[in-house]
Design a protein around this nucleic acid. Structure first.
Lengths: 179, 179
DNA sequence: GTCGCTAGTAATCAGTCGATGCCTTCTCCG
DNA sequence: CGGAGAAGGCATCGACTGATTACTAGCGAC
C-alpha cells in the first residue's frame, strides 16, 4: 500500500482510538491494531505519539471547517441556523466530537496546548466570517455547540431514558436539528 | 495526623493533580507527592485509582453545588445572573473547572461514566430548582457555562494577547462577571 | 509492660508503553 | 539479473505505574 493511503488509514484509526480514551488514555498499540499495522510502524510514521495525536486532532478540526465551508457554498439565508444543523449532522460521528472534546482538555499541555488553541480559534474565526455575526451572536452559537459537546461526551442521549430531566434537556438542545 | 484530615489533604492534592493531566494522565504517585505521603498509602486509602478520581470529582461537583446553594440562601431577585457570577468567581480556582472538564470526557468510561453523569445531572437539577427557569433558559445558562469551561481549559484568557479575536470573545463571555 | 490498633513507609512485583534498531519483502529501474 | 529504496514487521529496551505485601513507630487500655 502507498504511504499516503496507509497514513490516512492510520489517521482514521487514531481518530477512533483517541475518541475513546483521549490522549493519555490511548496507546499507540491500540491505534496500530485498529489500523491493522504494527505499533512501531505507527510511531515511526509520525515520529512521536504527540505528533500522531496532533495530526488526528487536526484532521478532525479540518473536517469541521470543511463542513462549515460547504454550508456557506450552498448559500442559504439563515447561515447561523444552517451551520448549527450541519454541526449536529457532522457530529453524529461521535468520534469527531470526542476527539475535539479531548483536545479542549489539553489546553494546559505545553506542546499540545498551542495547537489545539489555534485550531479552535481558526473555527471561531471561520464562523464569524461565514455568518457575519456579532461577537455576542458568535458567543451564543459557540456556547450551544459546547453544550452539545458535553451532553454527547457524557453519553446523555444514550442514557436519557434513565432521567426525565436529562431527556427534557437533550430534546431542548437538539430539537429541530435532526439529531 | 488523623485519618480524616489526611484524607482531606490527599483529596486536595488529587484535585490539583487530576486538574492537570486528567484521569489517565495522572499517576497515584503524583498525587502522593503533592500530599506529602507515600504512593501505596494513597492507593490503599481509596482502594483504586478510579475510586480516588471519583472522590476528587465528587468533591469538586459538591463544591459547585454548595456555591450555588449559598447564592440561593442570600436570596437575590436575579438568581440566574447571580449564579453565573458565583460560577465565574468559583472557577477562578481553575483546578475545579479542569477536574470537571476532564470528567466530561469520561462519559464513555463504563465505571466512571455513570458517576460523572449523575454529578452533572444533579447540578442541572439544582439550577432548575433554584432559578425556576424554563428548560430553554436552563439550556442557555448551561451553554454559557460550558463555553466558559472550554475557554478556560484552553487557557485562552492567558493567551488572549496573541489573538484579538480571542480577546474579544473572552471579554464578551466573561464581561460583568468579574473575571 | 504488653497487647492491639492505627497511621504510615519501603520494597517490590507484574504488567504496560513509547521508542529504537535491525531485519525482511517487494518493486522499480538500469 | 542485481541493487537500491521504500514498506513494514519482530524483538527488545528502559522507564513507568498501579497494586500488594510486609514491616515499623506511636499510643491508649488493661
Amino acid at each position: 500500500m502507498s504511504a499516503e493511503d496507509r497514513r490516512d488509514q492510520v489517521l482514521d484509526a487514531a481518530v477512533a482510538a483517541f475518541a475513546e480514551g483521549g490522549y493519555t488514555g490511548t496507546t499507540t498499540d491500540q491505534v496500530a491494531r485498529r489500523a491493522g499495522v504494527s505499533q512501531p510502524y505507527v510511531v515511526r510514521m509520525f515520529g512521536t505519539k504527540q505528533a500522531l495525536f496532533l495530526a488526528a486532532h487536526e484532521r478532525v478540526m479540518a473536517r469541521l471547517g470543511e463542513a462549515f465551508a460547504e454550508v456557506a457554498r450552498a448559500g442559504g439565508d439563515q447561515t447561523a441556523h444552517e451551520l448549527a444543523t450541519a454541526y449536529v449532522q457532522l457530529i453524529k460521528d461521535q468520534d469527531l466530537l470526542r476527539v475535539m472534546q479531548h483536545g479542549f482538555s489539553l489546553g494546559a499541555d505545553p506542546d499540545l496546548g498551542p495547537a489545539v488553541r489555534a485550531s479552535f480559534l481558526r473555527v471561531v474565526r471561520q464562523i464569524r466570517e461565514l455568518t457575519g455575526a456579532t461577537v455576542e451572536e458568535t458567543r451564543d452559537f459557540l456556547a450551544q455547540g459546547m453544550l452539545i459537546n458535553v451532553l454527547v461526551a457524557l453519553q446523555l442521549p444514550e442514557h436519557a431514558g434513565d432521567d426525565p430531566d436529562a431527556a427534557a434537556l437533550i430534546s431542548c438542545v437538539l430539537e429541530k436539528k435532526g439529531f
